[in-house]
Computed example of a mutant assay.
Amino acid sequence: MPQAPNGPGLLIHAAGPLEPNTLAGILRNSANARAAVTPGTAIEVVVQGPGVRLLAADSPVGDAITHRQHLNVKILACANSLRSTGLDTKELTAGINTVPAAVAHLAERQWQGWAYVRP
């Protein structure tokens, strides 16, 4: 992933069982961050645990997911969590990517100097 002109990006971690309102709030946080950080700063929301179910194409927060993608906020699902919940990548909302293991992705981003937020 290319780095922002001003350096590493912002990683927002959504973990555990999530209610739709909780994930919607986390996605609002990402929109607020997009409006406040230096233009070009990379922002990722990584969803881990049973909350990945809310990333399915029929999600009650589908509009919020799509809106964040238009703001150039990457939404990533943990592949291990998808497997644990029985959700296939083909069932995800269009535009959502995966990382093999959220915990490893979080560590790598922190080693790269990214800011880490867990709302």
Rank of each mutant, 00 (worst) to 15 (best):
P20K: 09
A104M: 15
P39L: 06
I43Q: 00
A35N: 03
L87G: 11
Y116Q: 11
V103W: 04
V61K: 01
L106D: 04
W114C: 01
A57H: 00
L76F: 02
E19T: 13
V73Y: 05
A4C: 11
W111A: 09
A31R: 12
Q110R: 10
W111N: 01
G9W: 08
A36L: 13
L54M: 03
I75D: 03
V61R: 00
A56S: 15
G40S: 10
M1H: 14
T22A: 14
L18P: 02
R28S: 09
V99R: 00
P17R: 11
L106K: 09
E19R: 11
A31Q: 12
L23R: 10
T93Y: 11
I26C: 10
G49N: 06
S81E: 13
R53W: 02
A94V: 07
V52C: 10
I75A: 01
V37E: 00
H105V: 00
I96Q: 02
N21C: 04
V61L: 06
A42R: 12
T38P: 07
N32Y: 03
H67Q: 14
N6F: 13
D88R: 14
G16E: 13
G16W: 10
T98R: 06
I65W: 11
Q3E: 14
S81A: 15
G25P: 02
L10F: 12
G16V: 04
L27G: 00
A14P: 03
R109K: 15
N21H: 07
L23V: 10
L10E: 10
A4R: 11
L55S: 00
A31D: 07
A102M: 04
